[in-house]
Amino acid sequence: MTTITLDGIGKTYGRVAALTEVDLALSSGITGLLGPNGAGKTTMLRILATALAADRGEVRVLGEDPATPAGRVAVRRRLGYVPQETGFPRGFTTFSFVDYMAILKEWSDAATRHDEVRRVLDLVGLSDLGTKRVQALSGGQRRRVVLAQAMLGRPDLLVLDEPTAGLDPAQRGRLRDVLGRAGESATVLISTHQTEDVAALCERVVVLDGGRVLFDGTVDTMIAGAASRVWMGAERHPAAQHAWRTGTGRFRNVGDPPRGAELIEPALEDAYLLLVGDAARDAGLEAVS
């Protein structure tokens, strides 16, 4: 069942077009959103989270129209949102901040609210830091506080903008577990630069570039697009779009391989690099012609 529909969405900041004619339909499950910096990912997530209105096109989220006040409130009641960057008001402890956010999410009964706050803090592994000031937490811990408030009330839609930024591998593993379980019933949209997170978690991946959808499909389909375009060699190949020296001392080359190249299985990161690189090359050719 489709839970999110974007139809011809556009958003412009001054003269800069952040999104151009974006069409997208998402259903429950976990979708990864990839793209270079400035691709329009955060703008798209803010529109879905009702923090921003689109200039053009039609948006439907969980069957509601966020352009109307009633629709916005209806979406917000079923939404969990992790913005790309957020600060914290002074004076709050971890518990009191999540508790305050729970009140803003209409958990008015103190006893049930406190139970829920304890549950989400446990979920993100912050139970022991409930009495610590948020300002005194590390970057990764603060990120988990934001994630905890997003999980309040088991939302039907989770919009997460770089949720794994600043998390160590153990925390990321734990987060994958939490999000994987959430994705069994909810629609989860994750914007990230960590392709391995997308490969590990997502059934579907959307790549944005220059405010347009470059790719929309399954992770396997995207990886398949890079088949026969990744090879190992003793040196950086001049035809490679991207190449780097691996820990073995050999070079991993991504691009159009020469004859007889030692092809290897591509990863999602290779497919992403090729997709974005090819798009940039095509755009350059169009500009020249």
Binding site: A49, T50, V73, R76, Y81, T86, P89, G91, L104, Q149
Partner: peptide, 20 residues
């Protein structure tokens, strides 16, 4: 003004600013 630091979190909560 304290919640300006968490603007997007407050903005996307169902309780609106007038209520606050």
């Amino acid at each position: 003004t304290s919640l300006l630091r968490s603007r997007d979190l407050a903005l996307t909560a169902p309780v609106d600013r007038q209520y606050r």
